[in-house]
Amino acid sequence: MSFFSTLAELSAGQSAVIEALSSGRAAMTRLREMGLNPGARVAVIRRAPLGEPLEVSVRGSHLALRLREAGQIRVRLTDVASQGGQA
């Protein structure tokens, strides 16, 4: 079973595959260059104590993103139980 959501809506411990990112915004291009491309596996590790930013792991690196950007990354949920795995 799989369903769609944005990266911002995932809770800690959930992992997903990136479906799409908004295109043409310079800021989002940088996220792609940091490895957040369609098809990449991404896991939410935790949220900062005040709710933001979000720590995600992608392609072996750990990145912190704000909800504004994470909300523009559409993901397909794959595995709710896994704690990050090799994302």
């Binding site: 310079a26 800021a27 940091m34 930013p53 720590e55 990145l63 912190a64 993103l65 950007e69």
Partner: peptide, 8 residues
């Protein structure tokens, strides 16, 4: 137009 991306 900058995104806050912080590497940990």
């Amino acid at each position: 137009d900058e995104a806050m991306v912080l590497e940990l």
